[in-house]
Design a protein around this nucleic acid. Structure first.
Lengths: 148, 148
DNA sequence: CTTGACTCTGGAGTTAACTCTAGGGTGTAT
DNA sequence: ATACACCCTAGAGTTAACTCCAGAGTCAAG
C-alpha cells in the first residue's frame, strides 16, 4: 500500500476540506496518517475509502459519534452484526420520530397558508389583520383587539 | 393592565426557564418588562400571551429569528398578510425538503436493517462479517478482505 | 536560493437557543 | 435584624461539525 497523497489531494478526491480531514483524525474517525520527513501527512487509498465510508454513513444519517461506534465495531470480531442492528434500529426510530414531527409542522403550515390565501382573495378585506398571526396567538379570542 | 408577576411565576406559568425569558427579552422577542423599585422585572398577562405566542410559533417550526419577524410584522400596519404568507411558504418548502431527506435516510436504514436481519437468521453464518458495514463501505468489492 | 503553493499546529470562531456561574441585591416572614 | 427564597447582571459554556486564523515550516521548480 503506497502512502503518497498529501492532504490537499485527498481533500480534492473526496470533496472534503483539509480542515475537515484533520478534524476527523483528531476525532479518531480516521487513523493517523504517516508523515513525510518534514511532517506532512501522507495518505493512501485505504484512508480515502475510510473517508468515503464516513461520508456515506453521514448521508445515511449517522452522527460522527455514531460513525465512530460503527468503526470501532468493525474492528471488534464479536457480535458485530447485532450491535450494528441495534444502532440502526435506534437511528430508524429517531428518524421516524423526526418525520412525524415534521409532518405535524407541515400540516400546521398548510393550514396557515390556506387561511392566508383565503384572506388575500377577499378583495374587500383590509389586509392589516392577519388571521394566521391570530391563529398562532391563540385559537379562542381571535377577534379581541390587540393593543395598538 | 396589572404588572405584578415576577419572572419566576411567569416561568412557572409558561413552562419556560427564567433564563429563557430573560434571553427572549435580550433578543427583542419580548418587550422590556417594568421594574420594581428594587429592579425586579414585573410582568402582566400580555407578556404571558406573547410568550405563549413564541412557544406556539416554535412548535410550528419557526426559528426565533423568524418569530421576531412575525412580531415586527404584527406591528406594521402594511402588507401584513402577504408578508406572512411569504414566510410561511418559505418555511413550508424547507420543511418539505427536510422530510424528503429524512425519507431517503429512512429508506436506507430499512434496507440496512433487512440485511442485518437476514444475516442474523442464517444460523450457519458466522456473525463477524457484517453486510451493512460492507454496504456502507462501498457496494462493489464487498468481499474484499479488510486489513486486520 | 528564492519564490510560491502547500502544509503544520494550536486555538478561536461559527450557529441556535439557550443554560450556567459568580457575585451581589431584594422582598418578606419571623 | 436576620434568614431565606428569589432576583439582578455580565459573561462564559453547551452541542455538532466543522471553519478560520496566525505564524511558522516544507516541497518542487527555476
Amino acid at each position: 500500500m503506497v502512502h503518497n497523497l498529501q492532504i490537499g489531494q485527498v481533500a480534492q478526491q473526496t470533496g472534503l476540506t483539509v480542515d475537515a480531514i484533520r478534524f476527523y483524525e483528531k476525532e479518531r474517525l480516521l487513523p493517523k496518517a504517516l508523515r513525510s520527513t518534514g511532517g506532512f501527512r501522507l495518505y493512501g487509498t485505504d484512508h480515502i475509502e475510510q473517508l468515503r465510508f464516513i461520508q456515506k454513513a453521514q448521508t445515511i444519517g449517522f452522527s460522527l459519534g455514531e460513525i465512530r461506534e460503527l468503526i470501532v465495531i468493525q474492528d471488534d470480531q464479536v457480535e458485530t452484526c447485532s450491535h450494528v442492528r441495534d444502532l440502526i434500529q435506534q437511528k430508524l426510530a429517531t428518524v421516524q420520530q423526526k418525520m412525524n414531527e415534521l409532518a405535524q409542522i407541515e400540516g400546521q403550515l398548510k393550514e396557515a397558508l390556506q387561511k392566508c390565501n383565503r384572506q388575500l382573495r377577499k378583495t374587500s378585506a383590509r389586509h392589516d389583520r392577519c388571521p394566521v398571526l391570530e391563529m398562532i396567538a391563540g385559537s379562542k379570542n381571535a377577534k379581541e383587539s390587540k393593543r395598538a
